[in-house]
Each structure stands twice: as C-alpha cells, then as structure tokens.
Nucleic acid binder design. Structure first.
Lengths: 193, 193
DNA sequence: GTCACTAAAGCAAAATATTTGCTTTTATTG
DNA sequence: CAATAAAAGCAAATATTTTGCTTTAGTGAC
C-alpha cells in the first residue's frame, strides 16, 4: 500500500504477455525516450514520450507507474554489457583495461545520467541488476584467470576495491573517476601481494 | 537554459537575504517535510508540504524549483554530523566503531531514503557536501592518530576502502551493509601492514 | 480457423501538480 | 524612516497524472 498501483504495474522486461503488440509498444517507447534524451531534458516528459511513440500517456503510467521508473528501465537496458571483456591472456592487464573503460563510461555525462536514472526509480531492483551485470563481467575475467591456475581476488573483493570506489567518486565527488584513477585502484589491489 | 528557472532558484542554505522571514519559512517547510515523511510517501507532495507549513506552493517552487531539490536539501541538513566520533585513545577502534555506526545508519530505511533524496536532486552539489561531511569525520579520527605520532591511511584511502564499499552495497545490492560487514572492511584495511 | 477470454491500449474527463504574472509584504540599506 | 529589492501571496493558466470505461489484440481451447 505504500506504492501507488503496485498491484497493477509490472516490470516491462518480464511481461506476462510478451506477444507482438506489447513488445512493439515498449520498443517504440524506449526509442522515444532515447530520442528525446538528445534534446532539452525539460522535454523528457511522459506526455512528450507518449506523443513521440504514438501512444497514449496512460499506457506509460499504467505500465511503468512513473517517468522515473521508465527512465530506470531504459537505463538498465542500455547498461547491459554487449560484449565480454578483452582477453589478452594476461588477466591483470585485462582487468585494468576493463576498469579504465568502465570508469570512463560511467563518469561520462550519459553514464552519470544512467546511474541517476537507475537510482531514482521507485523500485530498487534495477540498481541490483546493474550491479549484477558488473559482477558478471568481472567474473568472466576471473574465470579465465582461474582456468589458467591463477588466483585472482574474489568477486566481492573486486566489487569493494574497484567498482565501489569508482562509482562512489562519480556519484559523490567533484573529482569523479577517470581512467588513471581506475588504473591506480587496480595497481594498489594487485600490487599488495 | 537546460535547467528550468536556473536563474531564479538559489540554494536555500546560502540565502542572500537570511533575515527573519526567509529563515522562519524555511524552517516551517523543513519541519513540514519531516512530519509528512512519517506518513504515506504518496502524501509527500509540494502542495501538501506547503499546506502544512502554512505557505503557498509557489513559494516552494520558486525557492527550490522542485520537490526533489527540496527533499535533497532536507536530507543534507539531516546528514550533517552532530557530534565528533568517539575518542577512546585507540584510533583503530574508534574508526571501526564509527564505521559500524555509519553503515547501520545509512543502511536503515531512513538512511537509504536520505541517500536517494540527495542523489535525485537536480544539482549534484548536495552529494558532494555529504561526502565532505563524511571526510571531515574521518579526518577528525585521523588527526587524533597523527597527533599521537601514528600513521593512519590517507583520507582518500579511507574513502575508497571503507566509505565507498559501504555506500555501494547499500545503493546497488540486496545484501546491503551491516555493522559486521563494515568491521570486516576496517580489519582488512588495517590488517594489511 | 473461430471463439471465448483476458491483458493491455485507447480515450476522455477529473483530479493534481506546476508555472507564471502581478500584487503585497518585509528585510536591508542609507 | 524612507527607498529598494528580495521573497511571499494570490489566482489564473498550463501541464501532468489518475481513473473509469471502451476497444483492440494476443492466447488457448475447441
């Protein structure tokens, strides 16, 4: 009861009826959001998105409940990794390269916007999903290392020592986190013995 | 131009005209927010806050620009530390105790709500301010240690190794961060040599 | 295929929230 | 104690969100 309409709003990802129309409309709405994100942020409203997607606003309110939740779902979709981390045979180098790129992406204006969107959703699920994506990428690097008989740190340690500081600085400080900072984190972690 | 009214909205903290009325009204509005936070979150609207504070909604919109910005300012006010960390003479113990308490506070439902509020503001300033508060508390502990000729880690290292992981887990994972987790972080950091 | 069934979309009216122009009040300054 | 200007009040104009009801279109049984 603390969540308006909580019983009628479903996650659009796992629609119980994913037949043609629902998917088509969701795609149109997501595309409209992407398009409108290019322009003035003040124009990123539910009525504007609905108009551009050729849909009525109540469709959006009924499916997502709020603009924040819709933006959050769009952000998660875009944050889903589209490729595995590079594999050079040297997991330390791969890890450093991957984290540098991750930091730069997240610190960029679009990256920051996506994080804000994910975090301002009504439900907290999406933030967990993003974190899981990140963990999966790290796991890929770790598994390769393990397969070669090496002993990379646990995923939890990587999250605490690499991901958390990068994200914290982006969200909470003016300095942010660039590639050099990220590289420094990896060096400090791996150079400890 | 990318921010509606950006030229007419000031930070209420640093009002250029802090004479009696402005302060009185701000206090009434902050109090109204605190009060309404007790009840159904759906009732935490600008008109409701204005009504309870005995003020017209346009006052709030003109001063803060949006509900999100107002909630963010309220959260920062409440996040400002009200006391120095305990001083037992043993900075390691003080650090651990302080972080345990910090983690519990931030992981609590009110703590999470405050973080969400701070991060969903239009301006990013408030997040930086919160981080600065935290840094100041850590600095107090560090300075005591330094005064006794000890060598605590740099503040930046404490932020990366202790604060960032706690906050990250609260924001992005289901596990969250309890006192034990926080204590473990301190032990890992200090137990390294 | 066609039919019944139901989830989801459309539509439009009602309810809320936000913005804005103008007036009034009240700190601040000299 | 005026003059000034910042901030608040008021109310009308906009914009948004919510809601009840109707229509459309996937799904599964026959």
């Amino acid at each position: 009861m603390d969540q308006k309409q909580s019983d009628t709003v479903r996650s659009p990802q796992a629609a119980p009826r994913p037949g043609g129309r629902a998917a088509r409309i969701q795609a149109a709405i997501f595309k409209a959001v992407e398009d409108l994100k290019q322009g003035d942020p003040a124009d990123l409203t539910v009525p504007a998105i609905a108009a551009r997607a050729g849909v009525t606003p109540s469709t959006i309110y009924r499916r997502w409940g709020s603009l924040a939740q819709l933006l959050s779902d769009v952000a998660v979709k875009r944050l889903r990794p589209d490729a595995e981390p590079d594999d050079s045979g040297d997991w330390r180098a791969d890890l450093k390269g991957w984290l540098e790129q991750y930091a730069e992406e997240m610190a960029s204006e679009p990256g920051r916007a996506m994080m804000r969107d994910v975090l301002s959703a009504d439900r907290a699920d999406n933030a967990c999903i993003c974190s899981a994506f990140t963990g999966q990428q790290l796991d890929i690097i770790r598994r390769r290392a393990l397969a070669r008989g090496e002993t990379p740190p646990d995923t939890a340690v990587l999250m605490d020592r690499l991901i958390a500081p990068v994200i914290y600085r982006i969200l909470f400080t003016r300095e942010g986190a660039d590639g050099d900072y990220a590289a420094g984190l990896v060096e400090r972690l791996l150079g400890e013995g």
